[in-house]
Amino acid sequence: MTDVISIETVTVDSIDVDAAPPQRGSSWAVTPLTLLSYVVVPVALILTWDLAVRYDAVPSTLIAAPSDVAARLVDLLVSGKLEHQIAVSLGRLVQGFLYGSMLGVAVGIAVGSFRLASRLIEPSLLTMLPIPAVAWVPLLIVLFGIGETSKVLLIGLGSFCTLYLHTAHGIRSADRKRVEVAHVLGKSKSVLIRRVLFPSALPEIFAAARIAMALSWALLIVAEVIASSNGLGWFIWDARNFNRPSDMIVGMITIGVLGKLSDALLGRVARFATRWRDTFGG
């Protein structure tokens, strides 16, 4: 009888290295498709818009032509005025999103993991959720005035609801068989939550964070249009009030670009944090 594990057989199994799915190519490579989606499609849209203004399909006093918008964009960037509005808006967005999301994840974990927590607060939370965040605006203004607090709270509220709901669901969807493994290994509830339940909810948490980010942009602009004297929402509303059609569109494009960047950033963080997943991925 041999005492040593037969190394040869073991090695044979270990050669089976390439069970790993093929790696994605670098997403920075310029392919014809990248060119099409980032150059050709936007250019075609801008051309259509330009033609519509040029041939008076829309009144040029109300809608600016692309060339005017481009010139104005450069002006605003050089003078630093646009950067200022961006900084103000991003400050509100990031604060509201982070506070709201973190609280939402924390409450979601508590509700998902502890029956008592869910019994105590879930009925109230689930009654609060159907109220659209925008419907909170009057109350927030009454309570906190039109300052920064009410804006950050509005954004935070939207993020909180989204993250809470999905985190609780993600925790509850954890594989019972894996939870049983932690049980067999005598792990405490705290270890179970940190090392098993929370990681298994991560994909859903990140999907919710991206939805919350999109919602945060919407709520930011709503808050700034309704009651503000700075920020991108105020900027486009002010441009309408004082008939500056170029500014209006510069503001809109800025929001679009920043929204896209924030989503791309979250998407990258999500892909890294859940790189262990064995998914189709598209």
């Binding site: 594990i5 190394i7 057989t9 073991v10 090695t11 199994d13 270990s14 089976d16 290295v17 069970a19 790993a20 799915p21 790189r275 262990w276 997943r277 064995d278």
Partner: peptide
């Protein structure tokens, strides 16, 4: 190393065969 997986320590479970 006893179960013959010394060189797979850093792999994700998705990169393992059923036997591994």
């Amino acid at each position: 190393s006893l179960v013959g997986l010394s060189n797979a320590e850093q792999r994700w479970p998705k990169q393992l065969s059923g036997g591994m």
